[in-house]
Design a protein around this nucleic acid. Structure first.
Lengths: 161, 161
DNA sequence: TGTTATGGCATGAAAATCCATTGTATCCCT
DNA sequence: AGGGATACAATGGATTTTCATGCCATAACA
């Protein structure tokens, strides 16, 4: 059930005019150890104003988790509806994008808008998945722990911003 | 659930201009008995002005613990947020660094700053994890038992300081 | 034919790797 | 027990590789 390799660490990369970004190498290496795909799935995060990203292996796991939840629940109309909604979000509201030989993806315009991503993309590993933030939005969010904002500030400083 | 091999002992090593430090051999041997990785994960310690360090096996354990906590909790919004925050701290606020054949890591600049590490690094085994201190900060901290400070002083003397 | 997407290449910076030296503890032989 | 030889650990320096990213070439399309 649990995935062996976990996403961790942080990085701040540039997004060019066409919306291309390099996925940090240390995240790519996790993806490639989990499976042999070279794609990531993007979705709007459920709680934060950022994007949630993961690899095909996790997408499969998520599907299994949802199925199991449905089987456990009593099959009330409410539970059925909840399942349908979550399933839609998990699959219809996502986009799968490949990364090229140099590790770059093109952020689909819709996702770019949903995540409020502009010229800089902050990558944050969160174990099974990782997040992509507009660093400015992260610094504004009062639900984010101060220690994590320090990291965002440090990454900005590193670039002389 | 519990880890079989424990980190123990202390050592004082030099940090060079590039931030390179040798991980004491007796700590490395624990890492390599716990798993076959040759990397350590670094994080700011929650309570002390030092770094907390551990191996991939412990990181995985930590993740499982968090997951289990979430499943048990009722899925209230508050519980969800708490989970998200902890996950971010556990994975985004950490960095995984490999050590080379001679047992050295390079302290990432961010961690070096967070831990206040300068020219000397004091390693302290604490069972499941170990700590990396700037010895000066340890001697200053009034929460540290005197006997432990004696150890730090001894290690400094050994080097003629 | 102008415009936009996509793959490949070039570059500079940063990071991983290798090699060499020193100091220290350990072993072995006499 | 002394003395030398040996192995391992820590550290300094240099070299090679990788990464992020700008740029260009080619291809698709309007």
């Amino acid at each position: 059930m649990a995935l062996e390799h976990l996403f961790q660490g942080s990085a701040l990369n540039a997004v060019d005019a066409k919306g291309r970004v390099s996925i940090p190498a240390f995240l790519r290496s996790v993806i490639e150890r989990r499976g042999d795909a070279r794609t990531i799935t993007l979705a709007k995060h459920e709680a934060f104003p950022c994007l949630s990203a993961y690899d095909p292996a996790y997408a499969a796991l998520k599907h299994v988790k949802l199925e199991r939840l449905l089987e456990k629940e009593e099959t009330s109309a409410a539970a059925q509806l909840e399942y349908q909604q979550r399933n839609l979000m998990a699959f219809a509201a996502t986009e799968e994008v490949p990364y090229d030989s140099s590790g770059r993806i093109v952020l689909p315009p819709m996702m770019r808008r949903k995540g409020g991503i502009e010229g800089l993309a902050l990558f944050l590993g969160t174990g099974e998945t990782f997040q992509i933030w507009n660093p400015t939005l992260l610094l504004k969010d009062d639900r984010i722990p101060e220690d994590l904002k320090d990291i965002a500030r440090f990454r900005l400083e590193e670039r002389g911003l």
